[in-house]
Computed example of a mutant assay.
Amino acid sequence: MDIVELKTRKEITQAFAVVNELRTHLDLNKYLELVTEAMETDNYHMFAMMEEEEIVAVAGLKPMVTLYYGRFVWVNDLVVTSEKRNNGYGEIMLHFVEQWAAQNKYDHVALSSGLEKAQAHKFYQEKMDYDKASYVFLKKNV
């Protein structure tokens, strides 16, 4: 299996079906608009795990610097296609993100996970050794 960075519109479009399993509220046009803007303005990177020629997992991340975490990588999106879950692909992808962060001189990796995703929380805490560091609050429509 290879993990490749997705850079072209065609590559990013090919990842939509997988990303849409996590981001079900997005249609293809909105997805392309947001990914393009994030790449252009926010240093967003998107990586795909390829099994033969099929995308089986996607990770989207942003390198950031804040006073709270210092230099870190924020994982915006991490999804394994439903047919391939429970095969260790999420672990491989998250280890890849951690290696990418270290190679690019970022000290930490952080992410948030929806309150309803208890299985994902267990994965992050028990399998991947992530600590629950905070709550994320959201105010819509400002």
Rank of each mutant, 00 (worst) to 15 (best):
T81S: 15
E37P: 04
M49G: 14
K140T: 12
H95D: 10
V142K: 14
Y124R: 03
G88W: 10
Y130T: 00
A38N: 12
M1Q: 04
F123N: 06
N141D: 05
L115Q: 09
L138N: 07
M64Y: 06
M1K: 04
V35D: 05
N76W: 00
I92S: 09
L78T: 01
D107S: 09
Y124I: 02
M46A: 12
H95F: 07
Y44F: 14
Y68V: 09
N87R: 15
E83Y: 08
E40V: 14
R9S: 14
E52A: 12
R9W: 05
E116M: 13
L61P: 00
Y130F: 03
T8Q: 07
S134H: 05
A38R: 14
H25K: 11
V136F: 08
Q125P: 03
Y31V: 03
S113T: 15
K127I: 11
M64A: 08
L26E: 01
L32H: 09
Q99Y: 05
D27V: 05
Y106V: 10
S134V: 03
L78H: 02
L67M: 12
E53C: 12
A102P: 07
S113R: 12
P63F: 10
V73M: 06
A38I: 05
N104C: 12
V142Q: 07
K62D: 11
F96H: 00
G60L: 06
M39L: 07
L61R: 00
Y89N: 13
T81I: 15
T8C: 11
V75W: 00
V73H: 03
M64T: 05
V35M: 07
D2Q: 09
D129W: 08
L67P: 08
D77C: 01
M46R: 07
R71C: 12
V65T: 10
V136A: 10
